[in-house]
Design a protein around this nucleic acid. Structure first.
Lengths: 293, 293
DNA sequence: GTGTAGGCTCGTAGCCGACAA
DNA sequence: TTGTCGGCTACGAGCCTACAC
């Protein structure tokens, strides 16, 4: 992973860790799903502890987590048009989406309209005027919409997701289009140093079987580097793949509408209802997008 | 430095490097002065190679670099007022500063005005309308000024620097007031991993006397962690400071109008005229600020 | 059913001198 | 000399319908 995302020609500067194996079987101590406060980019902070031996229970637990259904709630997702993001007007809500997700309007009003409140991944509340007007009639979000677009720095091609949770509250998330890397070396932070740091921490943890912490961003990685134990076992033993064997890897990273392989059993760790941060992290980690009708 | 800027309670995760000395004498292979494209925060990328022995020439070269005069050019610096940064108006230019730095106006015009172009640290050109009007008469920057303020995200208390270089071209820099840290953990980048990476890279380089690269931000550090060799020698031997001795360290980091101790001999490496990036990096690394009259 | 454009309105960015510190 | 304010103007954000695909 480090080699894949690192700039070339600095290999000479990377210390080598001969005792760091290419695959590290770890116990997952904790997962914290997070989102960048500025960009809403989602990522997971995980504390991993390398293990030398493991019981059969571990495999069963991992399989259980894989089968664990995530909460199914109603939502819709729309890719923003030029009109949706221009300063000229508001947001055109697909008709069936509005009827499915939004509270129903009082059609005795002329025109029918209401105030909508939706909570984002940081639990910030956004307020919109929801109106049904025009010829032909349509659902629109007007007042408040442009603040959301500019606040989230959305452009045509990005997507928004409206979710109605089990408490009938509206949640609101975004998913940016695949653009060229947002901010290259945005600060004094050296990604090279960080990559070396991950290696050093992993090597240290591997040698001492002590825990270490990583930040894992599934959208930034060209492919998965954190694999559920059950998936790993299945790939290794049921398909008889052995070290050095050539094979073709399915690459579905960033394809729209497909599931990701990472499955984080965060919901199994708590009996409380998931926060909106959990929901959107889960949705985005699993790559929901472009839901229509 | 790592310990100083790291969050507490993660010490257990930091691998220890028993062979990494507390002071590392290094040969400076290259210095690249840089600025964050988003915030204009300046920093230096340095390639350092630990050395075990050094000739007396090294000390002389370091002293030479310390004495090396940086290019002296005319400039003025003003701390922005509430009026300067409000959307209500433009920028009030101190009279003597305008007369010293800006091209002189054609006073036959009523009112006297001209278009000014100034280049920032990224070589972006900013255009302003420079006008001399009001009662009493004053120099103002009007059209174009608000774009600059919002583009650079300037607030009252921040400073701007106008420089007239040897080619009579205008250069334009900023220096932000000391505020609470701008963006805490702005991204997926883990500063912990980065710090561990710096340690790992330094330890590896120290053991192999091989080069390593660091990013050094003088404004982020509570005190200096990169010291010119000559300064270090002087402190160690002429003042008879020995290891473990207690002493009081002059803390002038971030004081206004004082020089910093870091002296980067970048101008000695090239015979070309310095770029505006060099000039502003140099100015800001040396802490010029609040120049008046 | 939904994207875009034209028309209209109103809030505010931004230019000006007055005035005071 | 220069910071802030009230007055004025003009541009564009944003709500509306019309129309096309």
């Amino acid at each position: 992973q480090v080699a894949a995302s690192m700039q070339k020609d600095v290999e000479a500067h990377v210390p080598s860790y001969p005792n760091l194996p290419s695959k590290l079987i770890c116990l997952l101590h904790s997962v914290t799903l997070q989102a960048d406060p500025d960009t809403d980019e989602v990522y997971a902070q995980m504390t991993l502890q390398p293990v030398n031996t493991y019981a059969k229970e571990a495999l069963q637990l991992s399989e259980l987590a894989l089968r664990q259904a995530r909460p199914q709630m109603e939502f819709f997702c729309k890719t923003l048009t030029a009109s949706d993001t221009s300063t000229h007007g508001g947001f055109s809500v697909p008709r069936r989406a509005a009827e499915k997700i939004f509270p129903s309007l009082d059609f005795s009003l002329q025109p029918p309209c209401q105030e909508l409140q939706a909570r984002d991944i940081h639990d910030n509340v956004w307020t919109f005027r929801h109106i049904f007007r025009g010829q032909p009639k349509r659902h629109l979000l007007t007042t408040g919409w442009s603040l959301f677009v500019s606040g989230k720095k959305l452009f045509a091609g990005d997507s928004v997701i409206f979710v109605r949770d089990e408490k009938q509250q509206l949640l609101l998330g975004i998913r940016r289009a695949n653009r060229q890397p947002t901010n290259i070396s945005s600060s004094v932070l050296s990604s090279d140093s960080m990559h070396i740091g991950v290696l050093a921490a992993a090597a240290h943890a591997s040698a001492n079987t002590s825990p270490f912490t990583i930040f894992y961003n599934p959208r930034a990685s060209p492919t998965e580097f954190v694999i559920p134990f059950a998936k790993y076992q299945k790939a290794m033993y049921s398909n008889q793949i052995s070290l050095g064997m050539r094979f073709r890897m399915m690459c579905e990273t960033e394809e729209l509408g497909t599931r990701r392989y990472v499955k984080l059993p965060i919901q199994t760790l708590t009996s409380e209802a998931p926060s909106s941060a959990d929901i959107f992290n889960t949705f985005q980690l699993h790559g929901y997008d472009n839901w229509n009708k």
